[in-house]
Design a protein around this nucleic acid. Sequence first.
DNA 1: TCATAAATTGCACGTTTGTGCAAAAAATAA
DNA 2: TTATTTTTTGCACAAACGTGCAATTTATGA
Lengths: 191, 191
Amino acid sequence: MARKKISDLRRTELIEAVIDATHEHSFAALTVAQIAEFAQTSTGSIHYYFGGKDALLAATMRHLLDRLKVVTIERLVKATTPRERLDAIVLANFDDAFFSKKSCSVWVQFWAMAPYSEPLARLQVLNQSRVRSNLLHALKQIVPANQASQCCTAIQTYMDGIWLRSCQTGIAVDAGKSQQDAMTFLDRLLV
Amino acid sequence: MARKKISDLRRTELIEAVIDATHEHSFAALTVAQIAEFAQTSTGSIHYYFGGKDALLAATMRHLLDRLKVVTIERLVKATTPRERLDAIVLANFDDAFFSKKSCSVWVQFWAMAPYSEPLARLQVLNQSRVRSNLLHALKQIVPANQASQCCTAIQTYMDGIWLRSCQTGIAVDAGKSQQDAMTFLDRLLV
DNA sequence: TCATAAATTGCACGTTTGTGCAAAAAATAA
DNA sequence: TTATTTTTTGCACAAACGTGCAATTTATGA
């Protein structure tokens, strides 16, 4: 399956190029030529494999969303108690497999464009719903039913906030530290 | 001082135009012509009063940051206990005088561009530091000293996260509701 | 009133960028 | 090998945009 592999490889390379390049420029300020240069290819490739610049960002986010989903599931299957399940979801969000300054930068670019783009908005709602559903399921067995929803929003908001802050100037991103902080936060929030 | 007033008026009109326009397009996607149209003036005015598009965004953020500062101080002077001071800072963040979908949209555009722009990054650090300083001052009298820092980060992250989520598709922004939620969050976080 | 300064306008210029495309190169299959 | 398909390249083009500017209008004050 060399053919299949080549096209998947190229797509992945281009997506990685977006992630690398977003560390230096906002997505809007990036040109397809610059992204192509990061992937050591030409602008034509981006249109050949994705159809255009916007579609490349959407594909990049699908890639990141999928990685979050995979890491979350990996941790969830190992969890037994409700609290372990909750921790699994939160720790997955800060798993060093993909919680990095570069990823955070892409994520924030995504958040900033999603309100103005239907395809991106759909991805945003999809991910938000999935994380909420996972969290709620665990929370309902941890806190009283009438508090689960608010707790859930608080936790999700905290996680998003950490991602938002992590890409800012002067912030050092450390997955392990963020995981510890998140656990401390949960302990404090859940009495 | 009609002269002074005219130029201040124009500047304010242009800034309000940015806030209105950002509700429809990302700042990068906005053209100066569109912003000028929102302010019912010409593109030349923007360069006359601000020097360029980038400077206009910086001015808009200084405007919003200043409003946050003013509202915060107004509430702080009325507070007497540490907890009241803490509440004052948090409630100010969701004061309906400027917590709206439009403002949140501008704020998120700002966050997305700050990592790539020195002037914006300075504003971001300045505001972040001021809010943290205010919060810490109150928190040190509420929680044990070794917990104040982490509590502070959690609260600040929560507030930023709410702003981030508020501009997304499908989210209804309600200042009063956000204030209530924030108080509930604080009650839960601070034992 | 008249001179000076401030404010406003909108156009044109130079630059930039996403995209389409046709041709070349590489891979695959017959 | 030869034919066919996939992949890659990079240029050219049309569209769009920020900015500078010169001209016009409006306000100010002596």
